[in-house]
Design a protein around this nucleic acid. Structure first.
Lengths: 205, 205
DNA sequence: CTTTGCGTTAACAATTTTGTTAAACAATGC
DNA sequence: GCATTGTTTAACAAAATTGTTAACGCAAAG
């Protein structure tokens, strides 16, 4: 009886998209089922029909989000470029990916904070975890070869900070600088180029 | 009739401290009045007796938090040092202040996100706002004098990112690096020195 | 045209969380 | 001691939020 299969896919998809929107902005606790239903343009009961409970729905969305994080961090792993090119590749890759989904970064930070165990596990199994460790190892090798200078962990943390923070704290920074949405988008776009120069100079011997 | 004035001060203070703890970790929506009462070791009704509603209680805590932010950012404003010394002064000042209250950074970012209007106003009136603008202006002057290079806003944003992110995303970064609480504290302590070198090199002509 | 089954809806129930109240309590002034 | 006043408590009420159910609708199969 694949009668309303298309309809089903549609609403299920609509719910997922709506839930993603609402969860990303409000987190698990802050999100309201009614808000998700409104966003999807359906009845609240449908959310339960398709996903049983709020927690279950969240898990599905969250798994998708982890998927996305894996891909972003996967940008690190690529190929056998020299260290400075790898850094450039990561900065551009991350910033562009983050631009298309700016709410994501703060969401991840918050959920990390509230449920650390989940991530500890993920770091071991996912390719994001291995890619990151490999990247830190690359930095360590480059430092030993005196191609760059500084504590590898500090360098890594600095890169993450410089890339992630402008998205995670977007509203705060925008307010601090007195920028409009457009101005800030421009700032973020120009930032890729700035960051590569800034970081490369900062770790050069 | 200042009969139980001392007792009153005590419980009122106990409530404020408990509320600060709970709100900083969970935010306005995430916090539960019961959790605050438990933390303070008192009945839930007392919270209402002293502060009427959850929102009112939050406002009090939040105003205190703003006060603290003002002080932190005030570290920028000091004196007429040369720009590189000013940067050093800010990095050390901010990092040390943040170390004593690590939950604060993420809390502010989140509340900013949810209630931007409140902050837009604060930026205009508070001394944190003026101190920050003065600092950006200092950077602009230094760039014009060719003492340092780079877009002033990018430089400022980078400094904030490098200082704030390691506290805001503490749990995430710790998990990523596979560090214990102790190891991470050490990393943060050593970071001041690293950051000054890193930033100064990154913006030197 | 009736039956069947899934999707949908609205009304309802349960749970969680916040807010209120009346009574008990404790200390102070008389 | 006893009245008064501010504090505390427990029980209750109200509101907000999540979860369930029974009935309806509609499209396909027989």
């Amino acid at each position: 009886m694949d009668k309303m299969t298309d309809d089903k896919r549609d609403t299920e998809q609509a719910i997922k998209e709506a839930a993603k929107k609402v969860f990303l902005v409000n987190g698990l606790k802050g999100a309201r089922m009614q808000a998700i239903a409104d966003e999807a343009g359906i009845n609240r009961a449908m959310l339960h029909y398709y996903f049983r409970t709020k927690d279950k729905l969240f898990e599905v969305i969250f798994a998708d989000a982890m998927q996305e994080m894996n891909q972003r961090m996967g940008a690190i792993a690529t190929s056998d470029l020299p260290i400075l090119k790898k850094i450039e590749h990561f900065v551009y890759g991350y910033m562009e990916s983050a631009s298309s989904n700016p709410e994501f970064d703060l969401f991840i930070i918050n959920e990390f904070q509230q449920n650390p165990d989940y991530f500890t596990e993920m770091m071991k199994t996912s390719n994001a975890g291995t890619a990151m460790k490999a990247f830190v190892h690359e930095i360590e090798k480059a430092v030993k070869k005196k191609e760059i200078v500084g504590d590898p962990h500090q360098i890594f943390l600095s890169m993450i900070s410089l890339c992630v923070f402008p998205f995670a704290a977007k509203t705060m920074v925008r307010t601090m600088l007195g920028h409009s949405e457009k101005q800030y988008t421009k700032l973020l776009d120009e930032r890729k180029k700035f960051l590569v120069q800034f970081v490369v100079k900062g770790i050069s011997p």
